[in-house]
Write a protein that binds this DNA or RNA. Structure first.
Length: 577
RNA sequence: GCGCUUGUAGCUCAACUGGAUAGAGCGCCUGACUUCGGAUCAGGAGGUUCUGGGUUCGACUCCUAGCAGGCGCACCA
């Protein structure tokens, strides 16, 4: 039900016919020709650039070409009210009101699938997001990427693609050892009243570790905590379990559920790293060598050593990357290559990685490895979520990891709620920094786009409530012989953009388009609603407490679109606020 | 120094994968309420899209050279 695609197809048919009888020359591909939404000042419904695209090859001015095309376009279609040619050569089409009545009829008939692109072929996606270290609760910094990944998944799922949501657990390496030690010292603090060595900068000072320690003590009374080395492995496992438990609670409070949690440690244990390095070696992409010192300021500490390297420069990276540390352990990069091999072996069409801005520099090397492993360069799609600037009391709020005073997801949800957090985090393009103003987010006004959209839905719900009708049940209408007013058609035009909005959000993996669209739709609706204030004839419900069929389904499709949009964003649509 | 990224109204940001006279909100100015729920609406002022070149019917968008902010440049994860 994408009227723009429908008209593009119609147009192409007309063009082919004209070229058959020799009155038009066509290029091999008709790619550049589009049917789009004209700017609102033109008072047309759809618009095409066809005359400008074909003018050169036909050696005619866009205006002349447009004039001949318009005749064929008009002839083919009795739903068109008039066609205009506008300055550079656009052809603008205005439909008769009956077009919009038919449009509504179609939507009601396909209410379950409106907005979904059913013609496009469907893919199987793996999306990896969050993947925060299992050493403590999620904080605000993780939040944007988490929501971005979740909503990208929702968009793909809405469009009937297959999606697997995955969390990569970095449970291997130095940070985990330091984390386990921190838990251990907290345990000793509790059991033997030894004070926590807070001057050790490698340790995690956060108070949540105390809870982990308590839980581990309570669950495992038989363990002898006296000697660290003896229980290190066991304690590591329990500590990670505690952290993951907390992370999952955090994710849950954001409304996020991953399908898989993949353990780095297990990959290493299963020799997957060796296998992938072996594979790369056979392709001459691994060698022993030295990396040049970085060009940054502090090269004094640089020690040059020979180590195992991956030839990522073959794929455009600016230096080759280390696979093995001097103590023989694999680098983070090495096991991540193994993880991506693991992903590739599971036969997905596309792999999506959501990364924080601070990891953007990592993209080149990991995409190099995927290119090396898959021999293609369009398998992996990396999306970066830029930083969130927290603003409290009109001032930027700085978090300090060392002091342990950072705002957790838990704090955020308690203060502003899940819906507002999700909506505001998405409201901007993901590759621009985002201001997250606490005072603003809580405010229940137009300044807060969440409430603005929710309010439009609640208004529609209130009409149905007054009429004692169910907003969620299907509406059946036998006669579609009514016509919509200009104000209503304005909203229907916006509704017709919904499939286009979803399609773009899906193709470009840009979720912010959904809230932006919903805001615009809500805005048109609020305007329309207020017409009833000046003119009682324009109210939905008449004096006899009745509503006409056309208004009833009109409201229904608006609320349906808002509902499906808000479902994608993952926020609620209350019927009363 | 190198890489990535951003630069659009006073402020926060859109702009349909190259379209038309660049749009919203906040703030400012003027209006609409004993509300079909004002958490709303109508109107006004506000622009050299960071700068200079290029590509073409057409550039906020693409290329190129700069300028300015952010992030990154490890055997960390």
């Amino acid at each position: 039900m994408n009227i723009f695609d429908q008209y593009l197809n119609k147009l192409k048919k007309i063009l082919l016919e004209l070229s058959k009888n020799g009155s038009l020359i066509l290029p091999n591909k008709l790619d550049g020709i589009t049917v789009e939404i004209p700017p609102s000042k033109f008072k047309s419904d759809i618009s095409t650039n066809v005359a400008m695209v074909l003018s050169k090859i036909n050696n005619k001015s866009p205006n002349d070409l447009a004039r001949t095309l318009v005749q064929s376009i008009k002839k083919e279609d009795e739903l068109i009210e008039n066609v205009e040619i506008v300055k550079p050569g656009f052809i603008n089409i205005k439909f008769k009101p009956i077009f919009w009545t038919n449009f509504v009829k179609e939507i009601i008939k396909n209410s379950k699938t409106f907005g979904i692109n059913l013609e496009e072929s469907k893919n199987n996606y793996l999306i990896e997001f969050v993947s925060a270290n299992p050493t403590g609760p999620l904080h605000v910094g993780h939040c944007r990427g988490a929501i971005l990944g979740d909503v990208i998944s929702n968009i793909l799922l809405f469009n009937k693609h297959k999606v697997t949501k995955e969390y990569y657990v970095n449970d291997y390496g130095n940070q985990i050892i330091n984390f386990t030690k921190s838990v251990y010292f907290r345990i000793r603090e509790i059991l033997y009243s030894e004070s926590f060595p807070s001057d050790n900068k490698d340790l995690y000072p956060g108070e949540y570790i105390i809870n982990f320690a308590k839980n581990i003590i309570n669950l495992n009374k038989k363990i002898d905590f006296e000697n660290f080395d003896k229980i290190a492995d066991e304690l590591t496992e329990y500590s990670i379990e505690e952290a993951l438990k907390l992370i999952k609670i955090n994710l849950n409070s954001l409304g996020i559920n991953h399908d898989n949690f993949v353990s780095e440690k297990k990959l290493v244990k299963n020799q997957e790293v060796e296998k992938v390095i072996d594979f790369l070696q056979k392709n001459n992409l691994v060698y022993r060598g030295k990396i040049k010192a970085p060009a940054s300021e502090d090269k004094d500490n640089w020690i040059e050593r020979e180590q195992l390297l991956f030839k990522s420069t073959d794929f455009g990276d600016d230096k080759d990357r280390a696979l093995q540390k001097s103590d023989g352990a694999w680098t983070y990069f090495a096991s991540d290559v193994a993880y991506h091999k693991n992903k590739l072996d599971r036969n997905f069409d596309y792999l999506i990685n959501i990364l924080g801005a601070d990891h953007a520099g990592y993209i080149k090397r990991i995409s190099s490895s995927v290119q090396a492993l898959s021999k293609t360069n369009d398998k992996l799609i990396c999306k970066v979520s830029q930083l969130v600037k927290l603003i409290k009391d009109k001032k930027p709020f700085k978090m300090s990891k060392r002091k342990g005073d950072y705002i957790t997801v838990d704090d955020l949800i308690k203060e502003v709620g899940r819906d507002a957090t999700r909506f505001i985090m998405l409201n901007r393009s993901s590759d621009a920094e985002l201001d997250f103003d606490f005072d603003n987010v809580i405010e229940k006004s137009k300044e807060n786009p969440l409430y603005y959209v929710q309010y439009s839905y609640a208004r529609i719900a209130s009409v149905f409530r007054h009429l004692e009708k169910n907003l969620k049940s299907e509406i059946k209408i036998s006669k579609y012989d009514f016509e919509y007013t200009n104000e209503e058609i304005k909203i229907l035009q916006k509704i017709s953009e919904w499939p286009k909005c979803v399609e773009t959000a899906c193709n470009k993996l840009e979720p912010h388009r959904i809230p932006t669209y919903l805001y615009e739709l809500a805005s048109l609706f609020h305007s329309y609603w207020n017409l009833g204030k000046d003119n009682p004839d324009k109210r939905f419900i008449n004096n006899q407490k009745n509503i006409s069929d056309e208004k009833l389904i009109f409201l229904k499709i608006i609320s349906d679109v808002i509902k499906s949009g808000m479902d994608i964003v993952g926020v609620s649509v209350p019927e009363k606020m």
